[in-house]
Amino acid sequence: MLFRSDPLDELTIPDGTTVEEHDLVTDGDVLVGGQSTVEFGVRGRNVIAGERVRFGGHIEAEGDCRLDMWCDVADNVLVGEDAYLGERVHVGGQLKVAGDIDIGDDVDIEEGFEANGWIVIRNPMPTIVFLFVYLGQLLRIGEEEAAENALSTLLDEDSEDEPVVIPRGATVSDDAWRVSTPARMGDDCRIHGNIRAEDVTVGRDNVIFGSLRAKGDIVVGRGSDVKGNVTTRNGDVEIGPGVKIWGDVRAENVRLHENATVDGTIRASGEIQLHTDDVLDDPDEDAEAMAEMAAEMEGESAESEGSEHDEAGEANEDETTDTEPPESDAVEKGDSEEPDESDEQRERPVTAVEDDGEQPDPAS
């Protein structure tokens, strides 16, 4: 397993993430670095926050929720499994936990708490400290495989859903997503707010109700809709097919797809190029799935047409066999239908010979 120098060195917004009525909603986990501010409510599987993180709404976690010391939550905290609250955590609403609660000293829960499991009041150590101590102890006794399994379980490597990662010192709100690190957005996301980052990469089929601004490069993938400006200070801008930019584009160099639309002006100190390429390096899973489905449908239609032709051919052969009599029968029937001259002569009525003269009267 390979690790970066800092696991929270990038703002990561995975596929399908949406902002719904001031809530940040995702199917995966939510990881928030220390001293960050999240003005939204958060809904996800597991929610983990570092020290001095402030949430402007409620927290709903299907799995575990761990809040390190000095965290502040303005509303309720609902947890589907276990909850871990560090020292001097403040919850402005009610805490409801389906499993166990581990609470530190001087925790303030304004509307009380409920738990179906064990309630332990102590001072749990910070998440990162606990992780290093536990893994260090396993490695010290030679249990490298156990340490790797524990870390894999913690990071949930088998999960198909990528977590939302908010780096340390970030500010996330309806107004702006401000980070001092690169920002990467997946596909099919719906985000409110301007994005301010070191570099910005936007996936496919996203809707961003705001602008994009970066110090470095900005890449906007196929079919995305940016309802604002796209501006970079010292980098380039690449715009993919089907993209619509509702504002201006400003960069050193601009690469614009021939099927993209920019409602505002394009300003570049360098070059402006038109291209026909896909600006993202990762494969387009939706396009591949549609191509496979189309190939399967074509194969099924070809098979059905072939079977219909075969059935039609068999039906025609059956009709021909039923309508055409056997050759011997036809010959016998033909022989029987030939007229007999003697019979024809016998059956032919006798007519009087035409004569212009008068016929004698039989009465006379």
Results as ranks from 00 to 15, higher is better:
21 E>M: 10
364 S>C: 06
193 G>Q: 01
218 I>H: 02
49 A>W: 09
254 V>C: 04
251 A>D: 03
98 A>I: 00
275 H>E: 05
237 V>M: 00
226 V>Q: 03
338 E>M: 10
336 S>V: 04
127 T>H: 12
206 N>V: 02
340 D>A: 11
252 E>L: 10
105 D>K: 12
249 V>A: 00
5 S>M: 14
258 E>L: 11
34 G>K: 10
27 D>V: 09
157 E>I: 14
93 G>T: 00
17 T>K: 06
209 F>V: 08
86 G>C: 01
319 E>C: 06
212 L>E: 00
342 S>Y: 10
48 I>W: 12
124 P>H: 02
104 G>I: 02
273 Q>M: 07
192 H>N: 08
359 Q>L: 14
79 V>F: 03
42 V>T: 01
236 D>V: 05
104 G>N: 04
81 E>D: 12
320 T>C: 06
171 T>E: 09
122 R>V: 05
170 A>W: 04
105 D>Q: 02
214 A>Q: 09
311 E>L: 12
349 P>N: 04
102 D>F: 05
220 V>N: 03
83 A>F: 03
317 E>R: 11
306 G>T: 08
221 G>S: 03
2 L>W: 07
195 I>T: 00
188 D>T: 04
85 L>E: 01
160 E>C: 10
81 E>H: 08
156 D>S: 15
3 F>K: 13
12 T>E: 13
160 E>L: 15
272 I>R: 08
186 G>Y: 04
136 G>P: 08
97 V>M: 00
126 P>S: 10
239 I>F: 01
301 S>I: 10
4 R>T: 13
42 V>Y: 05
317 E>H: 11
169 G>E: 11
114 E>S: 15
252 E>W: 07
288 E>Y: 10
123 N>F: 09
138 L>E: 11
183 A>V: 02
39 E>Q: 15
348 R>D: 14
207 V>R: 05
197 A>R: 01
177 W>S: 06
